[in-house]
Each structure stands twice: as structure tokens, then as C-alpha cells.
């Protein structure tokens, strides 16, 4: 039955995006493990697939973007892809919103951000908290606090605010919000090509964001975007920056979740 479903329903592709695939490689490995643990069947295309075209789109290379979108669509179709899961908010936004815009009706692939996939999976919450309630297990008082940075492309642009927070909480962390959160979240400074075009500006913005996170008293600043993650991490002092997948405790998984 499952086999038939797969044939009729097509393939789910895990699309890490260039930054995860080539730079923050360990995130890819982690996310693949998480998806498997959540019971999600997926394929990967590694270097067969192209960049989603986000950098081209945002820098103003509209024709290049359209070409890239067309090429990718063909690759996805050749592999029977009907659903894409990505952990990169920029890819998510571009594949969902802008592919639709330039490809029109031909583009009928479902696109999800991985936090949505995790939240909706039937095994959601089925991961032993990395940080169980401490001490004698009384209440939540000993839980480690995390501050969550909303990636602009995930939050403001695509309206995904709750799922990452719920995933974080399901792992046993408490969230301590910054003054600027959700729709008023403050950009990390790296997006829109600014990290390469205006590095000093990008770093100053990130340092301000780090300062805002430190004010919450949290020891960890977590985000669900590889670009925010790398960029904030590079500018962090006095606080640990972690990508969402890094909050999952994989050692424990090996021992306990067999």
C-alpha cells in the first residue's frame, strides 16, 4: 500500500539549499536524521539539483532566476518530486512564492519549511528532550532558556512564527523572547546580498541583534535559517548561536530511541 502511495503520490525531496549543502554541511546530516526519525520518506538529489536562484532573484538578475527555476523544475519532474522539504527559509520562500510567480501553473510542487514538517509529523514531540527538567524534575524551573531569532524570510515573509518555537519547546527548552520578535523581529543583517555587498554593515546589524538576544539572559540564541545562523555565529560574543537542528540530542537518540 505504501509502495503504491509513493508511486501515485510522487517523491518527497529534501532540499537543503546551497548554504547548508556546501557550507553548513553538518546541518544537512542532522536534518536528514531528524526526518528519518520522524518517519518521513524522502529522496535527495545532491549535486543534480541547482541553487534555487534566490541570490540571483534578490540581486536583480530576473532572467537568470527564471532560467534557474525552469531548469530545477525539469530536474524535480524527472525525479517525480511532488513535495519539497527545505530547512532554508530563503529557498522555502523562493520555491513556494517566486517559482509559482515565474512558472505559473506548471509549478505544482508542495513546498514546506522543515519546522512545519517536524511539527506536523506523527512523531512530533517523540524525541527525548535534550534538556529534561533538571534537578529532581520539579516543574520547568530548571529548563535551559533559548532565545529564538525569527528569520525574515520565514517569519515576516512567509508567516511561519509558531512551528519553530513549538519544535524548540518540544525539545525541553524554554523560550525567552527578545523585545523584537515575530513580526517585529530584527533582521540578522546578512540577507538580500548584504553580507557580500556590505560586510561591515551586515556585521554591525548582527552585533546589534546579538546584543538584543543577550539582554534576555538566555545562553543560547537559536534560529532556523542557515544564513542567519552562520552570520550571527560569526558576530556572536557572550552567547552561543545554534541552528535549530543542533538542539536535537543525537547521542541520546542512538541509545534511547532505537
Amino acid at each position: 500500500m505504501k509502495f503504491l502511495d509513493k508511486i501515485l503520490g510522487g517523491n518527497t525531496l529534501y532540499y537543503p539549499g546551497c548554504l547548508t549543502k556546501f557550507v553548513a554541511k553538518d546541518l544537512e546530516e542532522k536534518y536528514q536524521k531528524i526526518l528519518r526519525q520522524k518517519g518521513i520518506d524522502f529522496i535527495t538529489l545532491s549535486e543534480l539539483e541547482l541553487c534555487c536562484g534566490s541570490p540571483a532573484l534578490k540581486a536583480g538578475y530576473q532572467a537568470d532566476f527564471k532560467k534557474t527555476a525552469k531548469k530545477n523544475m525539469k530536474i524535480f519532474k524527472d525525479h517525480g518530486v511532488t513535495r519539497i522539504i527545505t530547512n532554508c527559509p530563503a529557498c522555502f520562500m523562493v520555491l513556494k512564492k517566486y517559482y509559482q510567480e515565474v512558472l505559473g501553473k506548471d509549478w505544482n510542487v508542495e513546498v514546506e519549511h522543515i519546522t512545519q514538517t517536524i511539527k506536523n509529523s506523527k512523531f512530533f514531540g517523540n524525541w527525548k528532550p535534550a534538556r529534561p527538567a533538571g534537578g529532581l524534575g520539579i516543574g520547568n524551573s530548571n529548563r535551559e532558556t533559548v532565545s529564538y531569532h525569527d528569520p525574515c524570510h520565514l517569519g515576516r515573509q512567509m508567516g511561519v512564527y509558531d512551528q519553530p518555537r513549538e519544535v524548540i519547546k518540544s525539545l525541553g527548552y524554554e523560550i525567552s523572547e527578545m523585545d523584537l520578535n515575530r513580526k517585529n523581529s530584527f533582521c540578522c543583517g546578512g540577507g538580500g546580498g548584504v553580507q557580500s555587498n556590505e560586510p561591515e554593515l551586515a556585521n554591525k546589524i548582527a552585533q546589534d541583534r546579538i546584543g538584543q538576544a543577550k539582554k534576555t539572559g538566555a545562553k543560547i540564541l537559536c534560529t532556523a535559517c542557515p544564513l542567519c545562523y552562520l552570520h550571527l555565529k560569526e558576530n556572536a560574543k557572550g552567547i552561543k548561536v545554534k541552528e535549530l537542528s543542533e538542539l536535537f540530542n543525537f547521542d541520546q537518540d542512538k541509545n534511547d530511541n532505537k
Binding site: 525574515c152 515576516r156 515573509q157 517585529n184 540577507g191 538580500g192 548584504v194 556590505e198
Partner: peptide, 11 residues
């Protein structure tokens, strides 16, 4: 080219 396209203005 300094704009991060973060959308805080639109909001």
C-alpha cells in the same frame, strides 16, 4: 544594495 529585503518596513 544595502537593503536586506527583511520586510520590516512593509510590516
Amino acid at each position: 544594495f544595502a537593503c536586506t529585503l527583511c520586510s520590516a518596513c512593509l510590516e
